[in-house]
């Protein structure tokens, strides 16, 4: 992340996203696949780490092996297989986008970190080992069960997260870079999908 000064002189925190060059690796059509979509490949992968079926797939698009391929439905821009997609063709400065990514994994966490419970809140009055405990998870003989969806401890983070209403502050087309306002899911160097 870095910061960006808008024209009004406001300092806005922003994230830098490398968005290309992306290559069209497949064009899906209504008649053959049942829906319209475009498949984009991004990032270089080593040939020895790419399986033979995938090598054939990339060869069809006459491109090098890619480390990430994603399908995009309802892609407005007409592209044929093997063509490059650059950032300034898709986005413009001031666009509002949503960013999808895999959030940072935090492991198995208790309810205080995972759901924002407040814990017991006091270290005195007889407390000694229940400071971050969840408390009651329901009533007794009626309903005689714990309701589904009861918030408990468990795996935190490392799941698909979408952040909406982020603004594109700046585009640097020569390096295919985007500056998106605010924070986006995932660790540094992670793959994200930007939806318009």
């Amino acid at each position: 992340m870095t910061n960006f000064f808008s024209e009004e002189g406001k300092n806005i925190a922003c994230t830098v996203v490398e968005t290309g060059p992306c290559v069209v690796t497949q064009v899906l059509g209504e008649d053959k696949d049942g829906y319209n979509a475009i498949q984009l490949g991004f990032g270089e992968a080593k040939e020895k780490n790419t399986s033979n079926p995938m090598l054939g797939h990339f060869k069809k698009a006459s491109t090098t092996p890619k480390s990430k391929i994603v399908e995009f439905r309802n892609f407005d821009i007409d592209k044929t297989i093997g063509e490059e997609v650059n950032v300034d063709e898709v986005f413009a400065e001031g666009d509002v986008v949503a960013v999808v990514g895999t959030s940072k994994g935090k492991g198995f966490q208790g309810v205080v970190k995972r759901h924002g419970f407040h814990g017991v809140g006091d270290q005195t009055h007889g407390q000694h080992n229940r400071l971050r405990a969840p408390g009651s998870i329901g009533a007794a003989s009626y309903p005689a069960k714990v309701f589904k969806g009861m918030r408990m401890a468990g795996q935190t983070g490392n799941r698909r997260v979408k952040v909406k209403n982020l603004k594109i502050l700046k585009i640097i087309p020569e390096k295919n870079l985007l500056l998106v306002s605010g924070a986006i899911p995932g660790h540094k160097g992670a793959y994200v999908i930007i939806e318009k």
């Binding site: 870095t2 000064f5 830098v16 700046k170 390096k175």
Partner: peptide
């Protein structure tokens, strides 16, 4: 720092 971040900060920050 990451070369991309270096480039971006050189590009957008006030000189």
């Amino acid at each position: 720092m990451n070369p991309i971040m270096n480039f971006v900060e050189g590009e957008i920050a006030k000189k």
